[in-house]
Write a protein that binds this DNA or RNA. Structure first.
Lengths: 169, 169
DNA sequence: AATCCTTCGTTCGTGGAGCTAACGTTCTTA
DNA sequence: TAAGAACGTTAGCTCCACGAACGAAGGATT
């Protein structure tokens, strides 16, 4: 066989192919790959009843220690409004504990539990595998540079963006 | 001054910094950059009352000629259900024309108009500029490789993914 | 002390995007 | 001619990034 499938009932290229103009657009490529990546991680994590937000919060707690919800919000990029739900899920599963801050009674101090740490280790493992799957077609060196390029782009664009109102206003 | 801002009222790193674990995750970087890119293009296009889907459809028409809505759907990746609205918008603006296909009365044949071609040229220009802005921190060679890496990833993952039910089932 | 501004946790809601389900119409095929 | 598929369309779902607003609490200024 010259190729896997019978060409008889194959639609012509103009029916299925993506226009060149679109294939060139970095933005489009980016969304596409990001979508695939999201699917991968969501599906992978769903298998153990977890979401990527869980990982973000647990990792943040592990690395920087306990913090208020607002703090976690800033560290993870999750919106204050959405953090509530995430922490509810984590608390239900026994991975974090919510306690009132005696020094500032507006705050909840969030602490990671022993179970939370175990779960974090599990998540680390899973995400590692998923990362491998995502970057499968790239060589180690390419993966490295890919991540570096992405990092530079992200840093560049998240700097000047949403500047809080200048102090001289 | 040693650095731009007064350190007096600066929160400690543990309040704002993103955990290392998260900064490594390709998936997270990807979503982040993709989000920035989306914002850029959406904002840029909104200034002339356009959306990215418009570009996808117009480019597809220009490159492959007229086609049914289902065909356009396949070429652009836009869902059949959503294509309706996009075409309504394009038709309102006079960029495409919808005509019944006399050979197959289920189909609408979509054709790009002269105005549509003009608009496409405008969009090409704008998207070029936006691309430049998005990839600003990268050298030409880096941009090239970035796009190549993305393309490989996308091609790899869109191959085996949503296989239509195998003919031998 | 009283006032004003800010932060915090929370609830509710919005808009976009991807995706599925279903329906009536029309074409194809067996 | 009967069954199945493709088409355009409407409706609805879920997820996500955001924003508005509120009561509670804290901090700073008068």
């Amino acid at each position: 066989m010259s190729s896997g499938a019978d060409a008889a009932h194959m639609p012509p290229d103009s029916e299925t192919k993506t226009p060149e103009r679109l294939r060139r657009l970095a933005g489009r490529l980016l969304s596409g790959v990001a979508a695939q990546s999201d699917r991968l991680t969501n599906d992978g994590l769903a298998r153990i009843d977890a979401r990527k937000w869980h990982y973000a919060v647990l990792a943040s707690l592990q690395e920087f220690g306990p913090g208020s919800q607002a703090t976690l919000s800033r560290r993870t990029g999750i919106y204050r409004s959405d953090m509530v739900g995430v922490l509810n899920e984590l608390a239900e599963r026994g991975f974090v504990e919510r306690a009132l801050d005696p020094d500032d009674r507006r705050r909840n101090v969030i602490t990671i539990t022993a179970q939370g740490r175990r779960q974090l280790r599990r998540l680390d493992q899973i995400l590692d595998d998923l990362q491998d799957e995502l970057l499968a077609p790239l060589s180690p060196a390419e993966r490295d540079q890919f991540v570096r390029l992405l990092t530079r782009l992200l840093d560049h664009h998240s700097q000047q963006a949403p500047r809080p109102p200048a102090p001289g206003s």
